[in-house]
Write a protein that binds this DNA or RNA. Structure first.
Lengths: 336, 336
DNA sequence: ATAAAAGATGAAAGTGCTTACACTTTCGCA
DNA sequence: TGCGAAAGTGTAAGCACTTTCATCTTTTAT
């Protein structure tokens, strides 16, 4: 069943059928109804490929993320997908792992597939080295590139990010004010957001003339399988003489390890040991006491990201970079 | 840059270019190299829409799931996406929520988009009422439908499922043998897999002449936000006189609530209180002691699902239904 | 050496839609 | 009552590929 069949049965030209299909041009009510009747009777739907050929778009956006089964990334993908669908777009998902080359390859693949735009879901190991951003810049010459939780100043690339620096900075100050001694920052990677978090922690500690102590967990690569190993890591540090009573974690998984650690050490939380998570994920409910965590308002970020993208696709001028501040969701592991 | 440009620059016809592009027909080594050189020099990639029009496929599979941010579904989506990519297919993701109508609508949308097949990721509230399966059967007349963790006997629909009945049946028997009294089954929905789990529990209890006690958590709808509420629910039951020392949970989230409950009640786990989770998700590491859980080998299921789909797409005869057995991963919340 | 089979190539006809352009009809207003 | 504008409709030219079929060139077998 093609547009020709419909036009024939309705006694009009294919142009007219196309017009009623797209609501373009002008068609009299009478013929519109006649065509619509035929379309409904035969349950005709236009061929998406042909339409794509003609319009040079299939209303599809590519989403690239390292691992859609990661707690945080999964949420991001979910919200993005919802927003896109609400705007009449579909999404092609590409899970690339954390290798930069794989991301670049995925971008190429999506361009070949003729998507209308690409969303890179960040907060990973990407965007560290300026040179490596080349593939993003290149791609941006063909279609708009949206960066979630990553930033890059280049034509046709738009960033929306959470203000991780400010969130951690504020939180650290609060923990210091609460009188917790020896606050450490427990993190796993020097990702874009990881760097900003670290900087926030450092700034707060320095402001109060305290020595910063960032604890880097080397082996942990964004996967969350290994809370026991993380806990052992902390215990190991403890055994080698490092003592601390406050943990600012770069994500909830690490914070959970800290909770376990505190229990093992016999500290009482939050009285003599405070723990702050990040992401406000479902993990906050998975420990005793429940985890205080920073919510970076992912849904808001995604909503903004998509509305920006829609604007760009409609040829509007849009802000190149938007920053949203997070908030501390207080639960049982902190005094603030 | 089109195929015409390439053909011109290479001094051949477009048919020949098309042949080297697709490896179809036969082309002499010499001209093949010449064409390839031109293609590389100009970084030409064929237009996906035109190709789609000609081939009537764009090598894309639709994935429908209720909520890609759900722990289990996210993993499923991830594995499916990986497998598809490995086979040269892309995936369009549709998150529909748990409403049946939304699923049906998504199926229609994907068909309109001309995907080559649709994967319905199940274990939800779907497939309960025979009548409601109509949309699946209808869709199957147009393209192959793959069901993960759901089953339906109809032409052109293929199911791969985990043997939830057997897993729970075996586990319940083991818990009974371990001497745990008053074993309850803690679950949240009468989904396809939920029903089979319940049946497995019932069968084991009856076999040992024990009275089954399924605890249905009404408000919980597949979201995992509310572990505290689940815990309160158990405490409420306790306060109204219900005592038990073994929990078979229909997923890890519920099991986690049971762990919290056991701690609140002062039971020592696993000596006088046993808890068995389901899915072997990351949550197993999030409690003390760590959770024994049933692994239903999701990756294997997905792998098999995709290889079946690939077979179907290549016109091969494929098994309509495959069942995989799960296994108990023993950790700290059970004696077995 | 030669017929037949196999291999290489191109012309042209799809594939199903959009849309610019031209044409006809209708309408409002002078 | 006529005329210009606006509305309605059709023709035909894309859009960028695949593929059949016919033609020509090699190879192979006899």
């Amino acid at each position: 069943m093609t547009i020709y069949d419909i036009s024939e049965k309705a006694g009009v030209s294919i142009a007219t059928v196309s017009r009623v299909l797209n609501g373009s041009g002008s068609v009299s009510e009478k013929t519109k109804k006649r065509v619509l009747d035929v379309i409904n009777r035969y349950e005709y739907t236009p061929n998406a490929f042909a339409r794509g050929l003609g319009l040079n778009t299939m209303k599809t956006i590519g989403i690239i993320c390292a691992d859609s089964s990661d707690l945080y990334l999964a949420k991001a993908v979910y919200h993005i997908e919802q927003q896109l669908r609400g705007n009449g777009y579909d999404s092609i998902l590409c899970c690339t792992g954390y290798e930069l080359e794989a991301k670049a390859a995925a971008v190429g693949l999506l361009i070949t597939k003729k998507v209308d735009g690409i969303i890179l879901v960040g907060s990973n190991f990407i965007y560290e080295c300026e040179a490596d951003n080349q593939y993003v810049t290149d791609a941006a010459s063909q279609l708009p590139i949206m960066l979630l939780n990553a930033a890059l100043d280049a034509p046709n690339v738009y960033s929306v990010i959470s203000d991780d620096f400010a969130s951690i900075y504020e939180a650290t100050l609060k923990m210091i004010s609460a009188g917790i001694p020896d606050i450490v920052y427990f993190y796993n990677s020097a990702s874009y957001s990881g760097k900003k978090k670290l900087a926030g922690y450092r700034a707060a500690m320095e402001e109060k003339a305290l020595s910063a102590n960032p604890l880097l967990l080397q082996f942990y690569q964004g996967s969350h399988e290994d809370i026991p190993a993380m806990t052992r890591h902390l215990v190991g540090l403890h055994d080698s003489g490092l003592k601390f009573h406050g943990v600012i974690a770069s994500d909830d998984t690490l914070a959970l390890a800290a909770v376990k650690y505190a229990r093992l050490m016999g500290y009482s939380v939050p009285e003599d040991f405070s723990i702050l998570g990040y992401n406000n994920s479902m993990l906050v409910n998975c420990c005793e006491p429940e985890l205080t965590s920073i919510d970076n308002r992912l849904e808001t970020l995604c909503r903004h990201l998509i509305s920006t993208l829609m604007g760009v696709l409609n040829g509007k001028e849009m802000p190149k970079k938007t920053v949203f501040s997070g908030e501390i969701i207080r639960r049982g592991t902190t005094l603030f």
